[in-house]
């Protein structure tokens, strides 16, 4: 059976892990209603609007 001849160096291992298991942050957009940062295709968590419609009522903050 084929067996690795060399132990994977720290550098190689880190390079691999850095690219192959990197986490990505979600993309942020801004609510056209209130300007708050939101995720695309989701109801704005701060004002409850989605596609120009009040989808849910958010407890007011002040």
């Amino acid at each position: 059976m084929a067996v690795p001849k060399r132990r994977t160096s720290r550098s190689r291992r880190r390079k691999r892990l850095a690219s192959n298991s990197a986490l990505t942050l979600p993309q942020i957009q801004h609510c056209p209603q209130c300007g708050e940062a939101t995720q695309a295709h989701r109801v704005c968590p701060s004002c409850g609007f989605y596609k120009g419609r009040q989808v849910l009522t958010v407890k007011s903050q002040g």
């Binding site: 801004h30 056209p32 209130c34 701060s46 609007f49």
Partner: peptide
């Protein structure tokens, strides 16, 4: 369009 509902003060 200007925001109508949002009662929040914090902005981006």
């Amino acid at each position: 369009k200007p925001k109508a509902k949002a009662s929040k003060a914090e902005v981006v």
